[in-house]
């Protein structure tokens, strides 16, 4: 059984945010109006965070692309009263929109703040609907949404592999963010499979996980910058 995870090299990330926009395009994440954005209601399943240290001129800045951590011990699923958010056999934390009652307990429980609430239905104009990705459902008002590790790509890759009568390869299943990154900062694959890059990368001495002390056991690893 695969255990999907991600390793993001902070030395390689230039903060360009191609991953962020690719995620929105792949997963039909609707933009909100400027007013709504001011109220903190914009959704970014993948968000590039800047971490700044020091004072001028001894400043450093690193960028943390931040998807859902797909925690192995996810606090979000424990608080959901209707089991709308769940972790599957391969470690992907998902969200069942039809089941979600919009209580937002999970959003509050997630220490990484990666769960987004749909205060209003998505605003897609007639013409914009044409670019919606038919592999991903659009979300209605009143439900929580989040990064799925582009789960629909896994399903598709599996079907393709099965049709070809072969094993699923590492390159068959890559989420949109890892796919687009111009500096290959994001590695993705099966953490337990020695032939996948993430398997050895997660053993790198530079490895770091966010807020590990909370016991969430994130499956998104970061490689801390070399000094």
């Amino acid at each position: 059984m695969a255990r999907w995870g991600m390793v993001i090299d902070l030395d390689r990330c230039t903060g360009c945010a191609a991953c962020e926009v690719a995620c929105k395009s792949e997963n039909n994440v609707a933009a909100v109006s400027a007013d709504q954005a001011d109220m903190g209601r914009a959704s970014s399943w993948m968000k590039v965070m800047a971490h700044v240290e020091g004072e001028f001129p001894d400043t450093t800045m690193h960028f943390y692309p931040r998807p859902c951590m797909h925690c192995d011990n996810p606090p979000c699923i424990r608080v959901c009263p209707v089991q709308a958010t769940y972790i599957d056999d391969e470690g992907i934390v998902g969200q069942i929109y039809a089941r979600c009652i919009g209580c937002r307990y999970c959003a509050n429980a997630c220490p990484y703040m990666v769960k987004y609430f749909n205060w209003y239905g998505p605003e897609w104009s007639e013409s914009e609907r044409q670019h919606l990705n038919p592999d991903v459902s659009v979300r209605p008002t009143g439900v929580i949404e989040k990064c799925t590790f582009c789960h629909h790509r896994l399903q598709k890759a599996r079907e393709d592999a099965r049709a070809d009568g072969r094993e699923l390869r590492e390159e068959d299943y890559q989420p949109a963010c890892a796919d687009v990154c111009p500096t290959n900062a994001i590695a993705f694959g099966d953490l337990d499979n020695p032939s996948h890059a993430v398997h050895s990368l997660k053993a790198d001495p530079r490895v770091l996980r966010l807020m590990e002390d909370l016991g969430t056991q994130p499956k998104v690893y970061y490689l801390r910058p070399r000094e």
Binding site: M39, G40, K47, M49, A50, V52, R104, A107, M113, F117
Partner: peptide, 14 residues
């Protein structure tokens, strides 16, 4: 720091 970095945007949602 991480919470700070993540900014007010996400925090206000909650």
């Amino acid at each position: 720091e991480f919470l700070w970095t993540m900014g007010a945007a996400a925090a206000t949602v909650a």
